[in-house]
Design a protein around this nucleic acid. Structure first.
Length: 986
RNA sequence: GCGGAUGUGGCGAAAUUGGUAGACGCACUAGACUUAGGAUCUAGCGCCGCGAGGUAUGGGGGUUCGAGUCCCUCCAUCCGCACCA
């Protein structure tokens, strides 16, 4: 009776919450009467007594008394661990270090969902395991706390984002602590804490004060550059710098005013100010990223967005492009992730060469990877944004060009990308001269040419480039083959193998050789040079936002200067609203006295979200330090992250920027390793299920309502077939959503149309499942093991609790193997049997191997197998169960610690040693050979393990059972694989 | 279009080096103990077949004594990138 009441009440609660879909029905099954009775009983309890919660708690506790009481035990140990500082980490020179890191979360308002802990549990298991193996483990946690959602919320409510953030962090921490992670909370970091962002600002200052020496291939202090300028100007300087940097002499430099010098230096600094084209939304007062713009309007609010050139803070990440690419070969990361970064960086080898413009004193530079096809160039195309457009367009074409350019430029990047199939362009009226053959070719403006890549101009070779081909076909331009092969009637031939034809001195060469020869040619004739081009651009490092790190820079005469290091942290000022000022300045423009002591204005943009997360892994090494971002000793001891677990969505963001900053800090001698993350694993995403029901809303429009939340989402968004609408209780839904009591829901064939979709968990979709309920009902140990049992760590999977009972049962069975009804240990000290030892040792071995390769789903199975087998052996040997408990402790730390204590230990199981296993216990005396005939397993025969193959063969051939299968034929061949299998060919 | 990954029972999955396909768990079926059971225990459980047996790892082909695993080819799903010259 007791149990029944509990469970029915719970289900009833869910019913009241409106979650009727995807839950088991109330009426149905065999015992209808009984279920009904219980149902009404629970309704009674729910509505007519307010004591049901207390009752429920009592019932649960009562029912758990004879069994393992996870509620009590987990709470007890979590408190004790915190009290004893069990997870406090210090440098221990005599022990090898192991740094295991999780990607720290952004504390959103929805709280931690079941997807978050997936990776955390995995790294927690590894951390605990490594500790048992004698490593000194660093396993910290913190919060990526600056960001947009808190600020949006602040704009809506006027609540300071710091307050919301603090509340969210408190909730996250509470949830995390309930799962029993071995985090050292003394090392917690919060990126929005001034004591943390002081050092983010400090690193920015180092970047500002550095330039990239491309011949030394490392960043150097800006002073060395100034020294160089004083001696040589920038003559023969090899440095990463802005495209438009002019050549200067030492004399020029000497004549520069301080202001001019500062401006010139900006072209070399790794953090610099430059004019960039951005998506600017005047109504929102901020720059928007491409994905926030749709059809020229902001996605949020529908305000118009324009392209605008703006001064922006930038990071010269392109200086590190090659090293970021090459470094990938030295680290143990998932191949797909490396591939994504490689593609993002996008290195291509080619040549840059110059075409003269006919009748103008102008040149056009182009970048090409196929200079071998130079004789196949039949026109040239430049980007609509190019400055050249106005300079070269002839009078006759002016109008057409103007219209085209206007249209093209105002399209958002996204829009332009989604429309790649439409060929468009306009002839400028101008001509360029092919430097190889002096031929005059038309110059077109075409939007398939990107302003931001290469030089913003291309030499078009329709015969050997599919885009040029499509363009030439569309506008009737010449298609001239210069490489043998392909069928130009149908498509461009872009193969990189073949003989060059129609190409003067390149004729007869293979493509590869022709490229070499042509590059040598242009370098000799000073027409251009071989060049490596990257796809990656420098990163914008500013947002016109409030909730981010202030940039520690002030302006004098319009030139940026760093603030004094003593003034850090430059604390985020108070503002009266989290909106742009009336004249369009960022929110910091509202701050009173946002000036230096000398009255100079301070930068009003803040840093982007990725600033704080680009170095936090160093801060954990020495989180409390207020004289350095981390002490040298700590950096030298902990070095780098041994295992980093997190989602692949950060592939081209955080993971690239963090590598960039690590390389920079390494160059400047501040960090010990060039690559910060030795091994990285992407955990899969745990998806949620969203359920919807549709209602009529105006003419021909539907609105769908999330059944678990209050958010409307666009109709036509869901797959109706996925949803089992038999379970939908529309009256219950209406009661719950009283505002929809009179709404007209859409009926079809007597059923309401509803839908469900498996998708990412998010607050807006209202499909977030938190770990809290699971912990409440099954405990943290079960949650931990169940999340691992779900499948391979890397795989994405929808959340369901279908198998959770299996894990729960396993833990209770494990407990019962050791404990009697009173909860006391009942083990024997007698020597364990051979079979018992075999089970123990093979389990220890498998667990160790599985943890090392992060196959945690199979380790859970391994424990289950061990318990099944030991139960069958009626094992109650302490010498078996005690080591097994140690092995289990990384997975289920609470129950293991409790058992450990009950076994009489006074120190924590965390300080135990992982038991050594020995193959000698695993060898089996006899082996049951599967006997296969023509590769199909037909029978089995048992042999002593050391039986020679010859004897096995003879015995098998002699066996009477084999005769049935031979059907009188003689075996043609017999293969004996010792200790594995026998295969007979007939 | 390009790049990457993945396809195995009713479901989540396992098979680490080419060697008994489906471990482990869920669900399901039958039984035991029970006032009761969503507790516990026992047994069964890929599909077809009463059975002997046949058949089966997305489809087709190949290598091999032997293929989920290696090779070729096609298909499907997911993810990333997407006019990068």
């Amino acid at each position: 009776m007791v149990w029944v009441v509990r469970t029915k009440i719970q289900r009833e609660e869910q019913f009241i919450n409106g979650i009727t879909l995807n839950q088991t029905y109330f009426f149905g099954g065999a015992n209808l009467f009984y279920q009904k009775a219980v149902f009404y009983l629970s309704i009674y309890l729910l509505y007519y007594t307010r004591k049901y919660l207390i009752l429920r708690r009592t019932i649960i506790e009562y029912s758990g008394m004879a069994e393992y009481n996870f509620r009590e035990v987990e709470k007890k140990w979590q408190q004790k661990w915190a009290q004893d500082g069990t997870y406090k980490t210090e440098i221990k020179e005599d022990k090898p270090k192991f740094y295991s890191l999780d990607m720290f979360p952004y504390p959103s308002g929805a709280g931690l969902h079941v997807g978050h802990p997936l990776g955390y549990i995995a790294s927690d298991i590894v951390s605990r395991f490594k500790r048992l193996k004698g490593f000194n483990v660093l396993h910290p946690m913190g919060f990526d706390a600056f960001g947009l959602p808190a600020e949006q919320y602040a704009i809506q409510t006027g609540q300071h984002p710091a307050i919301t953030t603090e509340q969210n962090i408190a909730r996250y921490k509470e949830q995390l602590k309930k799962i029993g992670f071995c985090f050292d909370w003394d090392r917690e970091v919060q990126t929005c804490d001034p004591s943390y962002y002081k050092w983010t600002q400090w690193i920015f200052m180092q970047l500002f004060n550095s330039w990239y020496n491309t011949s030394a291939d490392k960043a150097e202090p800006i002073e060395s550059l100034i020294g160089y300028f004083e001696k040589n100007g920038n003559h023969k300087l090899t440095a990463a710098c802005d495209e438009d940097t002019p050549s200067i002499t030492a004399a020029d430099w000497a004549t520069y005013s301080d202001n001019e010098k500062q401006e010139f230096l900006l072209k070399y600094r790794l953090a610099y100010l430059a004019e960039m084209t951005v998506n600017w939304c005047p109504a929102l007062g901020t720059v928007l990223s491409n994905d926030e713009v749709k059809d020229g309007f902001s996605e949020r609010g529908g305000h118009p967005v324009e392209k605008k050139k703006m001064m922006q803070w930038m990071m010269r990440i392109t200086a590190y492009a090659s090293r970021l690419l090459d470094g990938l070969n030295t680290i143990d990361w998932p191949e797909p992730l490396k591939e994504m970064q490689r593609h993002w960086i996008g290195r291509s080898y080619g040549a840059e060469l110059t075409f003269d413009v006919a009748d103008h004193a102008l040149e056009i530079k182009v970048f090409t990877t196929r200079i071998d096809t130079i004789y196949g160039v039949t026109y040239m195309a430049i980007a609509p944004e190019s400055e050249l457009v106005d300079m070269i367009t002839t009078e006759a074409q002016k109008e057409a060009i103007k219209a085209y350019v206007e249209k093209a430029v105002n399209r958002s990047e996204r829009d332009r990308m989604s429309d790649v199939k439409t060929v468009s362009g306009v002839f400028t009226g101008a001509f360029a001269i092919n430097p190889f053959n002096g031929e005059k070719i038309q110059i077109w403006v075409a939007d398939y040419v990107l302003a931001g890549y290469g030089t913003g101009a291309v030499m078009a070779v329709p015969a050997h480039d599919s885009r040029d081909y499509a363009f030439a076909k569309h506008f009737g331009l010449e298609i001239r083959p210069v490489v043998e092969g392909g069928n130009l009637e149908e498509e461009a031939f872009d193969g990189k193998e073949g003989k060059i034809i129609n190409s003067d001195f390149l004729n007869g060469l293979e493509v590869k050789d022709a490229i070499q020869k042509a590059i040598t040619f242009i370098e000799d004739k000073k027409l251009g040079k071989g060049k490596i081009q990257f796809r990656m651009r420098d990163a914008i490092f500013a947002r016109q936002r409030y909730w981010g790190e202030p940039i520690p820079v002030y302006f004098e005469n319009g030139v940026p200067h760093l603030m004094d290091e003593q003034e850090l942290p430059l604390v985020l000022p108070e503002v009266d609203a989290y909106l742009p000022t009336e004249d369009g300045a960022p929110p910091l423009g509202r701050a009173k006295n946002w000036k230096t002591a000398g009255g100079s204005p301070i930068e009003m943009s803040t840093m982007p979200g990725w600033a704080g997360s680009s170095w936090y892994f160093y801060r954990y090494m020495d989180a409390q330090n207020d004289t350095a971002f981390a002490d040298r000793k700590a950096l030298d001891y902990w070095q780098d992250v041994d295992l980093y677990i997190g989602g692949s969505e950060h592939a081209t963001g955080h993971l690239l920027y963090a590598r960039f900053w690590a390389k920079f800090l390494f160059d400047r001698g501040f960090a010990p390793k060039e690559e910060p993350f030795k091994k990285l694993v992407n955990q899969g995403m745990i998806q949620g299920r969203s359920n919807y029901v549709y209602r009529v809303s105006g003419q021909n429009t539907y609105v769908s309502h999330g059944l678990r939340g209050q958010y409307d989402t666009a109709a036509m968004h869901v797959d109706v077939a996925l949803c089992d609408n038999d379970m939908l209780d529309i009256e219950g839904f209406k009661k719950w959503r009283s505002d929809l009591a009179n709404a007209e829901f859409i009926l079809e064939d007597g059923k309401y149309i509803c839908g469900a979709e498996v998708e990412k968990m998010s607050k807006s979709k209202y499909n977030v499942v938190t770990p809290d309920d699971i912990i409440e009902n099954y405990g943290a140990d079960t949650l931990r093991m169940y999340e691992m049992f779900l499948g391979p760590l890397e795989q994405s999977k929808p959340w369901n609790t279908n198998g959770i009972d299996g894990v729960y049962k396993f833990l209770r069975r494990f407990w019962r193997m050791l404990m009697d009804e009173k909860g006391d240990v009942h083990l024997s000290n007698a020597a364990p049997s051979k079979d018992e030892l075999r089970v123990l040792h093979k389990t220890l071995k498998k667990i160790e191997e599985d943890v090392e390769r992060l196959s945690l789903n199979t380790s859970v199975s391994t424990f289950m197998i061990a318990v099944n087998e030991l139960t069958a052996l009626k094992c109650n040997a302490r010498k078996i169960m005690e080591p097994l408990t140690i092995a289990l402790s990384p997975f289920a730390p609470h129950i293991s610690e409790e058992i450990w204590a009950k076994l009489g230990h006074t120190s924590s199981i965390n300080d135990a040693t992982y038991p050594a296993w020995d193959e000698k216990y695993m060898v089996q005396d006899s082996i049951e050979y599967p006997i296969a005939i023509n590769g199909k397993m037909r029978m089995k025969m048992e042999f002593a393990a050391d039986t020679p193959a010859q004897e096995v063969e003879e015995a098998v051939l002699a066996s009477s059972e084999l005769q049935k299968w031979l059907e009188g034929k003689t075996p043609r061949k017999i293969i004996v694989v010792p200790k594995k299998i026998v295969n007979i060919v007939i």
